[in-house]
Design a protein around this nucleic acid. Sequence first.
DNA 1: GTGGTCTAGACCACC
DNA 2: GTGGTCTAGACCACA
Lengths: 122, 122, 122, 122
Amino acid sequence: MEYNDQRAIYLQIADMICEKVLTDSWEANKRIPSVRELASDFQVNPNTVMRTYNFLQQEEIIYNKRGIGYFLSEEAKQKTLDLKKQEFLDKEVPQFINKLTMLGYKISDIQSLIKSKNNEDK
Amino acid sequence: MEYNDQRAIYLQIADMICEKVLTDSWEANKRIPSVRELASDFQVNPNTVMRTYNFLQQEEIIYNKRGIGYFLSEEAKQKTLDLKKQEFLDKEVPQFINKLTMLGYKISDIQSLIKSKNNEDK
Amino acid sequence: MEYNDQRAIYLQIADMICEKVLTDSWEANKRIPSVRELASDFQVNPNTVMRTYNFLQQEEIIYNKRGIGYFLSEEAKQKTLDLKKQEFLDKEVPQFINKLTMLGYKISDIQSLIKSKNNEDK
Amino acid sequence: MEYNDQRAIYLQIADMICEKVLTDSWEANKRIPSVRELASDFQVNPNTVMRTYNFLQQEEIIYNKRGIGYFLSEEAKQKTLDLKKQEFLDKEVPQFINKLTMLGYKISDIQSLIKSKNNEDK
DNA sequence: GTGGTCTAGACCACC
DNA sequence: GTGGTCTAGACCACA
């Protein structure tokens, strides 16, 4: 049996961090766990966490103080929101539309699908 | 690292079979692979495939001839479509709307999101 | 003896590629060597070249076709120029000024330093 | 991967000594480490250190008392400064100008580059 | 301690 | 074949 439709681990870790940010569990400008710490928590290789942190740093969600650690950026929440919106528009919206049309619905049906979810016409 | 956001294996197998049906890879009234055969293909326990077939039989997508094997029902395609529509309405539509509102969009934004995917204004 | 004031290898490789682009040795939209190929040429681990290509992809100098390889982007030359200008302004200009002032010159001396390079006023 | 854009080792050692002088870590007329001592510190062949000391002696930064060792000259700091200025004018200034023009700047842009480093127009 | 880089070697999906 | 990801383990600079 296959289990291969997985999102890469380093992105799964990024997702968890994004959730922490969006739910205000982690505050702006606060230090986040060290690479080794998170790697140990998740039972993952430090390089994998490093990739996560590189990714989030490119997205300007976190920043680094050399020899100290990683910190949430001032604009972490906004940047996270931007990232997630982009992912949503680029991937989930098209997927949703594909599925919708594959099942025989039209895009104009969306509003009615949402309102009466018991509608199974035909 | 956890991988626990998985759909049950027997349902994953069911999904694959549904895909075969919807893409016309498998035709109505044709015999489908035996439990043991599929179990071997997917490297899973035959009991798991049995659960899949029980499930699909309840949905009237397949039926059983004792001592012979399982066959796609006459209305397999329609039943599969019904099943998938139901799943879509029950799970994916609500999930989609949740995410959408979580990111700060309104339901009335859907049409414009679809048309111009570069739209990220709030 | 130390040799440790090195630029990271993956960035040295990036530098070489940038030079190829700036000197028009490599043309826009053309395929560039595969990760393994370049790794072999430079006697370096494929992961190191992968880091180089990731970096250049973020800079929009190259792009990827899955299963095919990496290609120079349409705007490769302009993007490379932008990158190099940024590096120059961020690192080399400040370094130059530091050295200059450390040696007892003033910033206003620059013009005269350039014109008469034999000037070693005490 | 090559690392061949290195300055000769004996000159790298000379650079370190010059730094000691310019930062007043070593005082005028004081004895400096023996050839063998420095060779051991830097894990290099004593002949290499010998070349360094010959070079610095020519530049009148150090002098030798036979059978005793090497000492910083009275004018060590000034001579070091002269040496470094010469190197700066002969090599680094031309290099800087080359790079600057290669990136599309004019020499007259220097002042503005220094003041507003965010300037990337042109 | 921290992160940053590199290697060697592995397995995977896509083409 | 291609790239993408992951692991294990190493060495380094910086603080």
